[in-house]
Nucleic acid binder design. Structure first.
Length: 962
RNA sequence: GCCGGUGUGGCGGAACUGGCAUACGCGCACGACUCAAAAUCGUGUGAGGUUACCCUCAUGUGGGUUCAACUCCCACCACCGGCACCA
């Protein structure tokens, strides 16, 4: 009988499917194992050898664990949303829905042709509305907890894919998918606040059984660094005095006034807080009179007017008083109040109006600060004032509504402009000889116009915008920058006035977007300082002791770091991780379930209306304008606000491909649930995942994102564990035969179908494992396939030649079968599948020609089944075993059979191999020594020399030292 | 630059806890079967010296520890992967 894989494999695949042998039960009494492989996106190209790496390994593991008596869940599904699927549909000129369905069908066929033991009863598909309903639902939980937010900012934009990208999707300044150089684009985008979980994501790694390399890579990506934030006050010699005008019913002793006075005085300014007349219902003119006649206001004065005090400040200027600056804090402009209570004096004062034309000329600058949480004065009033005064209006969240807190630190920032820097080396502050701002820094924007070299700065900022990420981030590039002339800051340690520069080597999104430059102890600062001839001062010597550092000189740098941080700043931890850009301007993704209402703002779609289904459209190509194709579908976009019922519009951006894959492993536990994404009881039974097989390339993408989602869901009490993946098993990349990455354009993509056709799935499976260690990168080389095929063929003859015999096992066979079971068991546990295959081959080589029993052949079939399940089933049938080989318990072996009665000793002289000795097990050192000494080669090696010492390792080795 | 990893025959690779380096497979050579070929089976296959037996040298390089090192320690080299003007 010949081995014909083509015939037997189809048959058994059908059998497994019909008998549902791989379906796993919830709440079985057996111990559970959850084995997971990364679910594929069903591309048009079909399954490739890269997929096989983890699928086959995970399949072997699953089958092995089943045989060992576990309830094993080994599911698969489809990650079918996203750019590749959409691009493929565009290319084929069909709807993504259609091509996706087709591709899934094809994939499934290929997967089944490999005999993989997936539990198809748990299949999920991210594009199925019953699935993405829950993706949307989870998104809304993020939204409700303030972890999904909308912001306008510079993001990475891929001009080819015509969509925004997350930071993780940009590799070397290029789009991770298509390799196009990304651009920076100012866009409104949805973000997930993954940065809030930065620390948790680092901490969680500790307890996981993951390869160190993977943990490290995630840790580096999150990029925690400890340092300090230090403020460098801006020099403004013209300001001598502050006068704080309190609000309508206040006194100088309440609100933030005493605190602010103290803070300003600490910095050497004169501060006055007049006790205004006429409270609680004052007259603005009367108060202005009082201030005018009792206090000196001049061009060195800054007036801080809080609420009604702001109105008085404007009145003073209207009268012709000149001051240096005016800061209006929560100052009313319309006379309307949010709480509806009347404040007649204020309304009366405001409604008289102001002569803004005149007022504007009386102060060098105006600044308006409103509180977004104000419960009295609408913050829109601030905008009105700012417009009229031509000033910059800042809307912030005050410590206490209407700035009624005892401390309002944001005010201090406004009154005393300073540049806040982040540094990991605060101990070098005495060497900070200049400060550098990122060109994108908002401070540069507001300061630029006043600068002495305005044009030069504007030009530099413009130039920076035009540079793409690659050029900007090239480290070998010569540093460039311009000085912000007319601006100086004070080094808080040395009290020196130092210059402020703008340079693109400082990045806007890290730290505070500003640095203190210490050219003596930072290479980049040094390059910059040398080019622009800025001073360089050594402050730490080679032995790590401070010098030229005032009272800190002589201290060890570690000690100084602590002390200096305490004295001049605050310790601060920053992360490189950035918030996750979560919207895409493409069609084929989950619609973001939000509605924009002109009155109510952004309103979530009510839960019972989920899923927000992706509408069917004719044109789904990207628009390129930064808007999703969905925006063009009026009938879908226009809806009623769920809160107030007025006309509103749907959010038209879709989610990135990473959304559906961020929680799919939870759905497998309870895939058909209509009321929840999965019930807690099922999750408790199955999770966490025992082994997660997948690629290294997902370490800082899917693996990080899904841990974040899971941790969030855990915090909401929706999942039972904070970490989903107990053990991670990455695999090496399979390169093409030419040693290059497999790609269609190179034409080096290996097609598994051809091998299956020629040699069968069992050969392909075992060959794939035999190629090399699972974690290692390997080149696909089909030459070796034949070796595995020969092995299966020899196994076939071994079994078929012995089925009808009544042989007994020879001693050798008993030893070999025990050995192979043991070795395979160990190999699977340690994921050394290549050596498992070797063990099988050695077994076949060793027992050919031996007398072998049916019992032993059955054991062999069960052991082989995880690797080559089809042929193993056939063996099982031939050997008249009952049922399926896949449901047989793992064979046991007698460990005593492994201990031969004869020990083979290695004989060494001076550590060099000189011969072997076969001697009865348990022989004494004396006996071994005597027998060994008789061997000629050993005698020759010892010769006339004297044996000084004998090293004896029982049952293994004897070494004569001469 | 920083952080990981890997270096073993012609090739893919194995070697437990320091104990016969090169298992297993490919390839190659020779032989058997055959009219012949393929397939299959058998034998051999690290390098050099020696026609035998045997000796010497070999696990990226140089050193060290040890009776004994692919394995442990130190220094260096090469390649692969990740991060990277991250203050």
């Amino acid at each position: 009988m010949k081995y014909t894989p083509g015939k037997i494999e189809k048959k058994w695949q059908k059998f497994w499917s019909l008998k549902k042998v791989y379906h796993s039960k919830n709440f079985s009494k057996k111990p559970k194992k959850y084995i997971l492989v990364e679910f594929p996106y069903p591309s048009g190209a079909g399954l490739h050898t890269g997929h096989l790496r983890s699928y086959v390994a995970a399949d072997v593991t699953s089958r092995f664990l089943r045989a060992q008596g576990n309830e094993v869940m080994f599911p698969l599904g489809w990650d079918a949303f996203g750019l590749p699927a959409e691009n493929y549909a565009i290319k084929m000129g069909v709807q993504p829905e259609v091509s996706t369905k087709q591709n899934i069908k094809n994939f499934k066929k290929q997967i089944n042709s490999l005999g993989l033991s997936f539990d198809w009863s748990r299949e999920v598909n991210t594009t199925d509305p019953n699935y993405y309903k829950w993706t949307q639902w989870i998104f809304l939980q993020f939204f409700k907890k303030g972890l999904a937010y909308e912001a306008e900012s510079l993001i990475n934009w891929c001009p080819k894919d015509k969509t925004g990208l997350a930071n993780e999707e940009v590799v070397d300044g290029k789009c991770e998918r298509c390799g196009t150089v990304v651009e920076k684009k100012e866009m409104r985008q949805w973000y997930l606040r993954i940065t809030k979980y930065a620390q948790k994501l680092i901490d969680g790694l500790q307890s996981l059984d993951w390869p160190e390399a993977v943990k490290l890579q995630q840790e580096n990506w999150i990029g925690r660094s400890e340092g300090a934030e230090i403020e460098f006050p801006v020099v403004n010699p013209r300001v001598k005095k502050f006068i704080i005008l309190h609000g309508r019913a206040s006194t100088p002793d309440n609100n933030f006034y005493p605190w602010l006075k103290k803070e300003l005085e600490k910095r050497g300014f004169k501060v006055e807080v007049p006790q205004m007349p006429g409270i609680p219902e004052p007259d603005d003119e009367e108060q202005a009179n009082y201030v005018q006649s009792n206090y000196d206001l001049d061009e060195g004065t800054v007036i801080v007017g809080h609420s009604m005090g702001g109105v008085v400040a404007l009145r003073l200027l209207e009268r012709g008083i000149k001051v240096h600056g005016v800061v209006l804090v929560a100052t009313p402009a319309t006379g309307k109040f949010l709480d509806g209570k009347p404040r007649h004096s204020v309304t009366k004062a405001v409604q008289k109006g102001f002569d803004y034309g005149k007022i504007k000329k009386q102060s060098d600058y105006f600044r308006v600060i409103s509180d977004s949480t104000d419960s009295v004065v609408p913050h829109e009033d601030g905008k009105i004032l700012a417009d009229n005064l031509g000033a910059y209006c800042k809307i912030v969240a005050a410590n206490s509504p209407h700035f009624n807190g005892e401390k309002e630190p944001l005010l201090l920032d406004e009154l005393l402009p300073n540049i806040k820097v982040f540094t990991t080396r605060p101990e070098t502050i005495f060497g900070a000889t200049y400060v550098v701002l990122a060109p994108e820094s908002p401070y540069v924007q507001s300061r630029m116009k006043k600068s002495d070299n305005k044009n030069e700065i504007e030009q530099y900022v413009e130039d920076t915008k035009k540079k793409n990420e690659i050029i900007r981030l090239a480290t070998d590039k010569e540093k460039t920058g311009v000085e912000l002339k007319g601006l100086k800051v004070i080094n808080p340690a040395t009290k020196e006035e130092i210059p402020v520069w703008i340079a693109d080597y400082v990045l806007p999104q890290y730290g505070t977007g500003a640095i203190m430059a210490v050219p003596s102890h930072d290479l980049r600062d040094e390059q910059f300082a040398k080019k622009y001839q800025l001073p360089i001062r050594m402050v730490v010597n080679e032995k790590g002791k401070l010098q030229n550092s005032g009272e800190f000189s002589g201290l060890d740098f570690e000690v100084a770091k602590k002390k200096i941080t305490e004295k001049f700043g605050n310790s601060k931890v920053t992360y490189k991780l950035r918030d996750w850009v979560f919207s895409r301007q493409r069609y084929w993704g989950e619609p973001i379930p939000l509605i924009h209402c002109p009155d109510c703002g952004t309103v979530p779609v009510p839960e019972k209306e989920l899923p927000v289904k992706l509408p069917k459209v004719k044109k789904y190509e990207p628009t390129g304008t930064g808007e999703s194709p969905l925006a063009a579908i009026d009938s879908w976009v226009n809806v009623k606000c769920p809160k107030c019922g007025s006309s509103a519009k749907r959010e038209t951006n879709t989610m990135p491909q990473w959304a559906g894959s961020s929680w799919y492993f939870l759905r497998y536990a309870d895939p058909k649930n209509k009321k929840q994404f999965a019930n807690l009881k099922s999750l408790k039974y199955w999770l966490p995942i025992d082994i997660y097989f997948g690629g290294m390339e997902h370490t800082t993408l899917h693996l990080l994102y899904s841990r974040f989602w899971n941790q969030f869901l855990f915090d909401q009490g929706l999942v039972p564990m904070s970490e989903p993946y107990k053990r991670r098993q990455p695999h090496g990349i399979i390169l093409g035969e030419d040693g290059e990455k497999m790609s269609k354009s190179r034409g080096n993509v290996a097609n598994p179908d051809a091998i299956i056709k020629q040699y069968g799935a069992d050969t392909l499976r075992m060959f794939e494992l035999f190629l090399g260690p699972h974690e290692q990168t390997i080149s696909w080389n089909e030459k070796g396939v034949v070796g595995v095929y020969r092995f299966l063929q020899r196994s076939w003859y071994l079994v078929s030649d012995n089925v009808s015999s009544k042989n007994k096992d020879s001693e050798k066979v008993l030893f070999e079968i025990a050995r192979v079971i043991k070795r395979v068991e160990e190999a699977v546990r340690e994921m050394k599948f290549n050596t498992a295959v070797s063990s099988f081959m050695e077994f076949i080589n060793a027992v050919s020609g031996e007398s072998i029993s049916k019992e032993t052949l059955k054991k062999f079939a069960i052991t082989l089944a995880p690797f080559a399940p089809h042929i193993a089933e056939e063996f099982w049938k031939m050997l008249s075993g009952k049922g399926s080989v896949t449901t047989q318990p793992w064979p046991t072996f007698d460990p005593k059979k492994l201990e031969s009665q004869i020990s083979s000793y290695v004989i060494q002289v001076n550590g060099k191999f000189r011969g072997n000795l076969a001697i009865a097990r348990g022989s004494s050192e004396e006996d071994v020594k005597e027998e060994a000494s008789k061997i000629e080669t050993v005698r020759n090696a010892i010769g006339a020399l004297k044996v000084k010492k004998i090293v004896f390792v029982p049952e293994r080795l004897i070494n004569f030292v001469v």
